[in-house]
């Protein structure tokens, strides 16, 4: 696939059709709209609900290690399983799931390029049958937070311009014109962006069919905003799922060593007392 730095993290819809039911492969659908799976899904695929299975909604956190191990075990996944994740909205929450699996050290987890949309548009087989799963006993490694940014690090990055901050939300959210994607509930007290952040909406990284743009197109997209592998990068959005998508692009398709997802994102920053905020339209790189 293209000349990505880590092409092994992507599989095509053709590959999933041919190998999705192989003994050591588990296909998982993770959607923004959790009803999509019930409508019809890839034969053999199971589903994870991001709202209940991939979030600790009391602590507003990712799931703790023991819950992660339980989810993997009940999903029939062992540390040696090749996990293929796909979802709606060009893999928004599929990327969120991969980010969490990498935090807990799962070696072989890949994204189906193009996600649910490409599978549907190609007229491939769907089923409403829920796959039977033989549970495994999964043991995760300790969480690796080198790919996760917390508030103090983001504050330092903004204050000292020590890292490239990438705001992947829509231009209207970045400018402060709207407080959430149009039609969705507002989750913050004010609009705008973190001082110093560049606006590179996540959707610019994908083609019309949902697949990722080529390595060279991606390099040009981020390079035009001064974002390259020479500096650490922190991506954020509203709750951390769109920025997981951008994290995936920068980490695996472009091969940046130091890129983190700030899952506190605008829901955290936009509600902080006394935090600086910039407002207004997108400016040119270097401005």
């Amino acid at each position: 696939m293209s000349n990505y730095t880590h092409p092994e993290v992507l599989v095509s819809t053709e590959w999933v059709e041919a190998h999705g039911n192989d003994a050591n492969v588990r296909v998982v659908e993770v959607d923004v709209d959790t009803k999509a799976y019930e409508e019809g899904h890839i034969p053999g695929a199971i589903a994870w609900d991001w709202q209940t299975q991939l979030c600790d909604s009391v602590r507003r956190d990712i799931i703790p290690k023991d819950q992660f191990e339980e989810l993997m075990s009940q999903s029939g996944i062992s540390p040696a399983t090749t996990v293929i994740i796909y979802g709606d909205n060009n893999n928004w929450f599929a990327a969120w799931a991969i980010w969490q699996m990498k935090i807990y050290g799962h070696k072989d987890v890949r994204l189906m390029n193009g996600g649910r949309k490409k599978w549907l548009s190609e007229g491939r087989e769907l089923t409403t049958d829920v796959a039977a799963v033989k549970p495994e006993a999964y043991q995760a490694v300790a969480a690796d937070y080198s790919i996760r940014a917390f508030l103090p690090e983001v504050q330092a990055a903004s204050r000292e311009r020590a890292a490239s901050l990438v705001d992947v939300r829509s231009p209207g959210e970045y400018s402060g014109e709207i407080l959430a994607p149009a039609g969705l509930p507002e989750t913050c007290q004010r609009g705008g962006h973190i001082p110093g952040a560049r606006s590179i909406p996540w959707g610019k990284a994908v083609n019309d069919d949902g697949t990722f743009q080529s390595h060279d197109e991606l390099e040009r997209l981020y390079g035009a905003e001064g974002v390259d592998a020479s500096r650490p990068v922190i991506a954020y959005c509203r709750i951390g799922e769109r920025s997981s998508h951008t994290w995936f692009v920068l980490k695996y398709l472009l091969g940046f060593e130091n890129v983190r997802n700030y899952d506190g994102s605008w829901t955290e920053w936009g509600n902080l007392v006394g935090a600086p905020v910039e407002r207004g339209a997108v400016s040119q790189a270097g401005a």
């Binding site: 923004v32 709209d33 999509a36 909205n89 829509s170 959210e173 994607p181 039609g183 969705l184 996540w202």
Partner: peptide, 16 residues
């Protein structure tokens, strides 16, 4: 027939 409405930017699902 199934229909899904998304806002174009950023691409969030509005209705199914």
């Amino acid at each position: 027939y199934h229909c899904k409405a998304d806002n174009v930017s950023p691409g969030a699902a509005l209705a199914r």
